[in-house]
């Protein structure tokens, strides 16, 4: 996945986008219903959507969204909450996933108001691309300092709500929120390079194409 400059009017694309957040990190916002996880090396082509620098199969497992639920299917060794997995298994709202010998992932659906889920690496392994985790974006993305958010930003004074309509990402207005330096009064679509600011901190959207 490489970031590309998209026309300002284009949608964010089915592969989703990256959100660079000041003081927090970079998150992959994944739009497709299926996310493949696998091993790889930095600088090398990676077959998986979420490549991890670890001794894993190139397509080690898949997370699939089906309506309200998520399932994990695996081709390589996987353990969920201490139970070895050999076939499709439904993922609860929170789970610890181990792939291979030592890759630890945390899986959470922090808000009952959103079907979106968060997948991040807990072990010392690093993703191939410079991201801190993947958000499987089903409908809304909640960012803020409180509980029940997908991305925790301790220093943000207000929550940020992004929501998905088809393959387009929108930003919900907030009192202190500025989109590209302008206050917004209604939901606005986000495009490549959109800069969302709340107070002194900002987040930048970067469209990713396969």
């Amino acid at each position: 996945m490489t970031p590309t400059r998209s026309p300002a009017t284009s949608a964010t694309g089915p592969q989703g986008c990256r959100l660079w957040i000041d003081g927090v990190g970079c998150w992959q916002l994944w739009f497709a219903d299926t996310l493949t996880l696998g091993g790889g090396a930095a600088g090398q082509p990676c077959e998986a959507d979420f490549g991890i620098q670890a001794a894993l199969s190139r397509r080690h497992c898949q997370v699939m969204r089906s309506g309200e639920h998520y399932q994990l299917s695996t081709t390589g060794p996987a353990v969920i909450d201490g139970q070895p997995v050999t076939e499709n298994v439904f993922l609860a709202s929170a789970a610890n996933i181990r792939l291979g010998n030592d890759v630890q992932l945390s899986w959470t659906r922090p808000s009952i108001l959103s079907r979106s889920a968060v997948l991040r690496i807990c072990s010392p392994h690093r993703p191939i691309s410079s991201i801190d985790g993947v958000i499987l974006l089903a409908d809304t993305l909640l960012i803020g300092s409180g509980a029940g958010v997908h991305i925790t930003c301790p220093r943000w004074t207000q929550p940020l709500v992004l929501f998905r309509r088809q393959d387009q990402l929108f930003c919900q207005p907030q009192p202190e929120l500025e989109l590209d330096g302008q206050r917004i009064k209604a939901p606005q679509p986000l495009t490549h390079g959109s800069l969302i600011s709340i107070g002194e901190l900002c987040a930048r959207l970067e469209v990713v194409t396969p």
């Binding site: 660079w20 957040i21 000041d22 003081g23 927090v24 990190g25 970079c26 410079s130 390079g193 800069l195 600011s197 002194e200 901190l201 900002c202 930048r204």
Partner: peptide, 20 residues
């Protein structure tokens, strides 16, 4: 606000992605 927004290149050879 931070002095440099994302994608700034104040220093030759480096692109800022985010503030830490």
């Amino acid at each position: 606000k931070f002095t440099f927004p994302p994608e700034s290149r104040p220093l030759d050879g480096y692109t800022i992605k985010r503030a830490i």
